[in-house]
Write a protein that binds this DNA or RNA. Structure first.
Lengths: 231, 231
DNA sequence: TCGCTATATTACGAAATTGTTAACTTTTTC
DNA sequence: GAAAAAGTTAACAATTTCGTAATATAGCGA
């Protein structure tokens, strides 16, 4: 089926053991890391430790229904961004509105067709992880258009050679995240390029001449980080 | 789901990241090209570069509300015809009149139902894009008539051999988009033609003799791009 | 505050990329 | 089938970008 590394964690929640098994069987084949819960309460218990990237959950469950469970999970700050996919039976009284309101990303109508399910899940998780080459990055007056290979700051055009452009793109795409020189070389220069670490400094400096200096901060001994906060 | 090529550009504007993500997920599935903004100001920054066909925007936003933003966008001559669709919460104090006054095409009441949203958007954009295979390309004084295989600049006839004509057509049809030599060879020469990459350079040069030189820009290490902007 | 270490800055040369020209080949036209 | 036009290639020139190293500056712990 699939030989690549998936490794994404998925929590399966359903009170019907058959469904759980069906899901487990099909997703295990895809190398996902799985956990199972039989009801909403159990899901809540598990989720904090397991921290799945995606939760596949039946809407209709005893004890606590899917909507309610989703709402409680979304209320936990560190799990706010967990993806949730609901399972619902055809004709089941199901308020689509309530589901999306509770933070659902999608839903699937039972009976489950394994092929469709798997491709849908692959799609959801691929999008989430594959750090897409977003065509437009906009943050703090800075607009980077990767299609045009052009960037503007407060409307004024920035002249950015390739390396500077790529470096700025990478930093701006991951604001408030620190990268050390090695990481930047790896991500921007590529894993096969062998240059001295200090090269990064020089490019950082050139960028600082073109955008507000404080946008790129130095954390001594740690790395560089893009952030539009002043202090 | 939708397997066809949409390619229409949509700008999403909302201060709630969850809504943005929800919209992004559902529209990306439809192959739209997306950009996101978190507030009105950012939307304004982006819009000039991105030139979306449609803007989906929350009405209530900090910094600058949707109505105000829409008004400013509509005030930019080249964006006058951009479609705008507002998002508004039920019961939100929302003057429909003001919205349409600001140039809105439609509005949607939250919570968002993805299926409905997508079909509504498909409908809006389909209606708008009766786009044929574009037999006439006109941009910045340049008029290319593919049916007649003729081109003029500022009214004067350009003498363009076939390859030059095709190359210019392709570039002008995709303004502000960068292509490297490989892509141009693929698209203009065809996938079965085997010529040296640098052949492109020579044709680019010949074109530059016939239209304002700055129309075709070189991005070192990246490719060529057609743009009528001067700098 | 001193001294050590990490980062900033600068300038310069090497490397990579593109521009330009002209000779050569292929295709088209008459 | 010859002449003209178009297309391709290759060589060399011009340009830009990049990486390095040397030096200056700043931050941090003792």
């Amino acid at each position: 089926m699939n030989t690549q590394f998936n490794q994404a964690k998925i929590l399966l929640v359903d009170d019907d053991p058959d469904i759980l098994e069906l899901l487990e069987y099909n997703l295990a084949k895809e190398n996902y890391v799985l956990a199972k819960a039989h009801d909403g309460q159990q899901a809540l218990d598990i989720v904090k430790q397991f921290k799945p990237a995606l939760i596949i959950m039946d809407v209709m469950m005893p004890v606590m229904d899917g909507i309610e469970t989703a709402r409680k999970i979304k209320a936990i700050p560190e799990l706010k961004n967990t993806l949730i996919l609901f399972l619902t039976a055809r004709g089941e009284e199901f308020t689509e509105v309530a589901a999306f309101d509770a933070g659902a990303h999608d839903y699937i109508i039972k009976p489950i067709k394994p092929r469709a399910l798997v491709s849908r899940i692959n799609a959801i998780l691929k999008r989430d992880s594959a750090e897409e080459s977003q065509e437009i990055i906009a943050i703090g007056g800075l607009v980077i258009n990767r299609t045009q290979y052009a960037a503007t700051f407060d409307g004024r055009t920035l002249v950015l050679p390739k390396k500077e452009f790529e470096l700025l793109s990478y930093l701006a795409k991951n604001p408030n995240k620190v990268f050390n020189r090695d990481e930047l070389l790896e991500k921007v220069w590529g894993s096969d390029v062998y240059v001295v670490e200090r090269t990064v400094d020089v490019h950082i400096r050139k960028l600082r001449e073109k955008i507000p200096e404080y946008y790129i901060k130095t954390l001594k001994g740690v790395g560089y980080l893009f952030s539009i906060e002043k202090a």
